[in-house]
Design a protein around this nucleic acid. Structure first.
Lengths: 126, 126
DNA sequence: ACAACATATGAATAACTGTTCATATATTAT
DNA sequence: ATAATATATGAACAGTTATTCATATGTTGT
């Protein structure tokens, strides 16, 4: 079996004919591709950032840790909605919390969060 | 009307009673909050990064510009699916393309893309 | 003009997501 | 113990999304 053969996609054998194909590039990248697992986790991470309410919550928290009712007030959505979204953000490792009395204080989990948000903001304002 | 009053959420007046509330923080941040419009655009941007197939496509393109059939081969999904996802990435300003003969060569639109992907990868591997 | 190729697009469908509503849990004060 | 507060959670519903299939568009060679 030739090396070119190995590069074929089983379902779509016709595209071996593509004149534009960069065989060398494809061969070189085939090994270095992100794994399915990594791609999955990365996409799940960005999925947590893909909702307007969650983005607004994170921007609140960039100003400092705060309890759920503070967030509720700043973002202006129901307590239940905030709580559900905080859960999503927590599962994605974007926020953490600590309990103090009856209140839970949420905060940004690490520096990656502000980097991603800042880069996203830069991107949309160009 | 007192300043505290202004901070109340119309739908949920009860949370003025929250003992954990950080009124000073909320007052300070209320003005500096991200606008609804900005939050919407940022969330739309991350939505474009929130799919495994699109993430894999972008990682391909980090290796260099390539035509649709190259991407199809590396990612292993149908031509139609690749094309639909490239459209989403294009609309989000994450990729661009140029035509050369029958082929369209796609590439990463700007530096923000690799920054966001790299930060995302860092985040999930901790 | 015609055939082949490379890619895009629209419709349809199955799977997923965010909110709301009702209720549960945990903490504190009485 | 009981009531009140702060937050979480499960179910349900409406809206959204990714893929597939069929077809359309644009380009090249004959």
């Amino acid at each position: 079996m030739s090396e070119e053969k190995e590069l074929q996609c089983a379902e779509c054998p016709h595209h071996i004919e593509c004149g534009g194909k960069n065989i060398e590039l494809v061969k070189r990248l085939a090994d270095k591709m992100i794994t399915e697992e990594e791609a999955y986790f990365v996409s799940e991470l960005f999925k947590a950032l893909s909702d307007m309410t969650r983005v607004r919550i994170l921007f609140c928290l960039l100003g400092g840790e705060m309890c759920v009712c503070d967030i509720q007030e700043l973002v202006g959505v129901s307590q239940s909605a905030v709580s559900h979204q905080l859960r999503t953000l927590k599962q994605a490792g974007l926020v953490k919390y600590r309990r103090e009395g009856k209140s839970l204080y949420y905060s940004i989990a690490d520096g990656h969060v502000s980097t991603m948000l800042a880069t996203g903001l830069e991107h949309i304002s160009e």
